[in-house]
Computed example of a mutant assay.
Amino acid sequence: MDRPQSSTSTPMFVLSVEGELMGVDTPANREMVRRIEACVRACEGISTDELERGIVADMRRVLAEVVPVLQQRVA
C-alpha cells in the first residue's frame, strides 16, 4: 500500500554515495544534503561509536571552556 504524499517539511530524498540528490528536489532538501555533506567531512576520522557517545558535544564543551582562557593569554 502506497503512502499518501505529505505536505509537511519532512525531507524526502536519497543521497547517493556520489553525493547526488535523488528524490524531491527542493531548496530545503538541498540544504539538508549540504548539511549532511558538511557533517560527514567534519567528522572524518571520528568513529561512529565515538559519535554515538557524544564526542562532538564533549569537544564543543571543552573548547568553550579553553578558548576564552587562551584568548586572555594572547591579549
Rank of each mutant, 00 (worst) to 15 (best):
V40R: 02
R60C: 08
E31W: 02
Q5I: 08
R41Q: 12
A42S: 14
S6P: 01
T10I: 14
S47W: 06
R53G: 07
T10M: 13
P27F: 07
D25M: 02
Q71M: 01
C39K: 05
R53S: 11
M12S: 10
I36D: 08
G54P: 12
S7Q: 13
S16N: 09
T48S: 02
V40T: 00
G19P: 00
Q5A: 13
E65L: 09
E37T: 11
E52A: 08
V14G: 05
Q71G: 01
M22S: 08
S6K: 02
G23E: 05
V62G: 00
L63M: 11
R34L: 13
R35C: 02
S6I: 02
G19H: 01
V24P: 05
L70H: 02
M59D: 08
E52C: 06
G23Q: 04
M32W: 07
R53I: 08
P11S: 07
S9N: 12
D49R: 07
M1N: 05
L21Y: 11
V56C: 01
C39N: 15
G54M: 01
D25A: 07
R53F: 04
R3Q: 07
T8F: 12
E44T: 06
M32N: 11
M32E: 14
A28V: 09
S9K: 10
I36W: 13
E37V: 06
V40E: 01
A28H: 15
I36E: 12
T48W: 02
